[in-house]
Nucleic acid binder design. Structure first.
Lengths: 187, 187
DNA sequence: ATTATAGGTGAACCATCGTTCACTTGTCAA
DNA sequence: TTGACAAGTGAACGATGGTTCACCTATAAT
């Protein structure tokens, strides 16, 4: 059963859709669609997949998602526990407004005390009202930067997350294009 | 045409699959499947979607993915340029070996100088041979921690990314469970 | 005024769809 | 040995799939 599951996942990854019953039969070497049908019924009962109103198979979370464990201190669960683990896609987890979200690469170390290093990717959301303390992407006097937004009364300051740099008080124009909603780093 | 595109994306997000031609017609208010068929032909020509060997519609990158811009300094492109932007899913970007990758929440600030703060999520890959300098999840003398792995000859040290903590030289047992492959932070 | 051309209608084609039913296995427990 | 049961076969059903063809507007270009 687990071997079957893996093959269906492979199909889904390649075809970007779930297979039909005939395709499952072909995939697993069954000579009858009904064998595939019964298999899918079992998988639905096991919570691995679901069916929509027209009977088509739709993938559940397990397909192409990442397992969420506890904290570092908790260590790794045993295989028996693993079945209870929650799963989620990174996109679902990190992005609320998909249409307005973009990825930007970070260069420079002006936010390093905020844990944002050069080479990191930040997810930014456009058209989001910036709040005090948010990290924003802004155009100040012709240059694009990423900084903390500090509001105190009418006064607006762009503060770096690095003691070596000085806060910027915009003179001519301040254009806040986006708010940083997440940071991502790949090793 | 853009309005149509948006509705099809919405269908895909809900149903987790691309609609059939009949469904597209219903979705867009057409009274004939053929209107949908011709629309899809245009979308294929425009590179928005593709078809597999059986004629079924498969989504292209634009569906459900995140746009990748340049660096922070480059700022935001104009709407005209946006059409040329590359897109990717975060899962594709961050995860190489899906079956062996897990998410762990970070607690404690022992890796803060490495830009990993409490509350961050780390992606860890199991069964990956750890190299010198990698950040690893390890069980040392009964406790789970996240540290830099330092090898020098036969000597193995677990070094924190925080000057306030001291490196750990494992005494009894050292069990390296996983290697950190990415860090993710949500604001 | 005439001619293209893009966008939609309506019907038809066969293949495949999901689903059901009756039947044949093999396996393991009682 | 018998019975129960899980797993696969094979055929059938109406519905829906992708595709094609002929036809019908509009709107814009010539």
């Amino acid at each position: 059963m687990k071997k079957y599951h893996a093959k269906i996942i492979a199909f889904y990854r390649k075809a970007k859709r779930m297979p039909s019953y005939g395709e499952i039969a072909r995939l697993l070497g069954f000579k009858s669609k009904n064998a595939a049908y019964k298999l899918v019924v079992k998988m639905v009962e096991a919570g691995l997949v679901a069916k929509d109103s027209s009977g088509k198979i739709i993938p559940k979370r397990i397909f192409g998602e990442t397992r969420v464990l506890g904290t570092v201190e908790a260590g790794f669960p045993s295989p028996a526990e693993e079945e209870l683990i929650d799963t989620i896609t990174l996109d679902e987890y990190l992005i609320k407004n998909k249409e307005a979200t973009y990825m930007l690469k970070v260069s420079g170390d002006s936010m390093i005390d905020a844990g944002i290093k050069p080479g990191d990717i930040v997810l930014v959301e456009r058209n989001k009202p910036p709040k005090n303390g948010d990290i924003v992407i802004a155009e100040v006097d012709g240059n694009w930067t990423m900084k903390y937004l500090r509001k105190s009364g009418r006064q607006i300051t762009l503060a770096p997350g690095n003691k070596k740099f000085k806060p910027i008080v915009p003179e001519d124009e301040l254009n806040i294009a986006a708010v940083v909603t997440a940071v991502v780093r790949k090793y």
